[in-house]
Design a protein around this nucleic acid. Structure first.
Lengths: 307, 307
DNA sequence: CACCGGACACAACCATCGGTTGTGAAAGTA
DNA sequence: TACTTTCACAACCGATGGTTGTGTCCGGTG
């Protein structure tokens, strides 16, 4: 049974003629459609005269059923219409740049139907699978363009500049700005980075590019422990995103020192299903493209990042 | 939205794979169907893996709606399925042969869902229109084959032999059998036949064929009045179908005298919508074809009757 | 009474669609 | 590594469903 034929039948039944102007098909096509429908269900639905058509008795029985089918179809389409449910965005971690960017987007789009979740996937490949399966609609990751699975689109929408975070006793504590190469010889500790993740790859590339010694291994005993260690050490430093909200460097007299010439940036990339029509997703991408903190200054990213 | 695609989606969702064996289509066809459906509604319904498919979150939302559409379609088809309502047969008049034939059919088919109605249409053309419009499903009439409207089928299924009905004083009252030609010169009165009807045409043809004087005009004052007149008259006669149930010739000592050589028969023809699939209609036609009182003897019918 | 116009069906034609078979890629398994 | 399973893509092709053109029916009209 063809849904379009039902639509045609309802229209003809209501207008009384096959002149289906608003149907967008010719009278002959409407005639064939309904003839096919009648042949399919085995009864005559319309009484044709030379001055129009009326519904037969069987047609009168069939009409409300046809309308019910059409209503069910409409409801089914409505139920999954893009935008009918909140957009689920994986922001990785509520402290870092993606979460704050999504929050700014939400502030500037008050009606946006949006859930920010933290999925805690191991790595970008698992996050991509979660996106593919619909667990979330989008996820902020950093993924080389040639590793994006089929069915997933990746857009680099958020560059997070890195800053050096040191305690008051560190030799660079009072420098107004630091170049990445200046960090050579200093010990940089970034706990909680698990091997095999894109974070590990990023810091690996960074250390190779500038001859740094970045210690990205070891368990993470919590931000407080890290900050305590930084505050007490004259040799230890770490790297954080310029927008990361740590509570609170001030409490420990920690210093954020911007990196320049070039500025290493972490290339947050939004993964989403190719062709996803969700209006909030579209708006979020537009927002990030136009208002994101992409800096015009010279930046450094790993070689495996596009552009 | 294609209903078949919904059916396919439900099957795939339940089996977990595109091996749509019971769908009667190939795996590739199922894949294309669902891809088209997904493109149409704008969301991904299934998560494809190399070992089957699972429904995505959107698919889980969509699935019950799809089932509802299919149920509505099934109900719509059920509502007008041939046989879902009683067959309405116009028997013209409960006294004459068609009504009795339908009654015999009903007796031999106890479960048959059947309404016998008397439509009181003026003539066969109007009855045909009523059939076409679905007011009744079938009507017993006598209609030349070349006057059957398009969309109507006509089957001559019931031959009603005529008998002479006379009072005890009539010259032919004691004849065991009479030939039509023997009636020439006798006055035959058949009240209640309106001009323009197929009955008038039948008696007109009969009178011309055998040189009879049939008075078919005049109002019908009721069967009782006719029988009273017959009982009292030595010159008056009328013609009745051999199966017609008049109450009661015996009361007036009326005589039924069969006509032979040839036997004029009234060719009751069943009009019904071409292609009507109603099982009771099919059974009724079969019944009449096999058990009807079609006589092998020599019969007379008007020239405009087929065969 | 002949003509006209509205409405539907039929015929011919054609693009699109939805099916098939054949093949390839991905991923789990022996 | 080789094999199996499963789904997607490509090529092909007949059926489907659209179009235009035309015919018929029938009621209204000059």
């Amino acid at each position: 049974m063809d849904v379009e034929a039902l639509r045609t039948f309802v229209a003809v039944a209501e207008t009384g003629q096959f002149q289906a102007d608003e149907l967008g098909i010719s009278q002959q096509a409407a005639s064939k459609r309904i003839a096919t429908l009648e042949r399919h269900i085995g009864v005559t639905l319309l009484v044709r005269t030379s001055r129009g058509s009326r519904v037969s008795l069987d047609g009168q029985v069939f009409l409300p059923h046809a309308k019910k089918v059409l209503a069910a179809v409409e409801q089914a389409e409505q139920a999954v219409r893009p935008g009918s449910r909140p957009l689920r965005v994986d922001v990785l971690n509520r402290r870092i740049a993606p979460a704050q960017a999504v929050y700014r987007f939400y502030r500037s789009h008050p009606g946006a139907d949006l859930d920010a979740v933290t999925l805690s996937q191991e790595n970008a490949a698992q996050a991509a699978r979660a996106v593919l399966e619909g667990t979330v609609d989008a996820s902020f990751r950093a993924l080389p363009a040639d590793q994006v699975p089929t069915g997933i689109s990746a857009e680099r929408l958020l560059d997070a500049p890195l800053e050096l975070l040191v305690g008051p006793g560190h030799p660079l504590a009072d420098a107004p700005r630091v170049g990445p190469a200046d960090l050579a010889g200093h010990r940089i500790w970034i706990p909680g980075i698990r091997p095999g993740t894109e974070w590990a790859a990023f810091y690996q590339a960074l250390s190779e590019a500038f001859g740094l010694s970045i210690d990205a291994l070891g368990p993470n005993f919590g931000d407080e422990a890290l900050m305590d260690a930084l505050a007490d050490s004259a040799a230890l430093a770490t790297l954080v995103g310029s927008g990361d909200r740590y509570l609170w460097p001030q409490n420990h007299d920690l210093r954020r020192i911007p990196l320049h010439d070039p500025t290493p940036v972490y290339p947050h990339t939004l993964l989403f299903r190719s062709g996803d029509q969700h209006p909030v997703l579209t708006a979020l991408r537009d927002h990030l493209r136009t208002t994101g903190p992409r800096t015009p200054r010279e930046v450094w990213t790993p070689g495996w990042v596009d552009r």
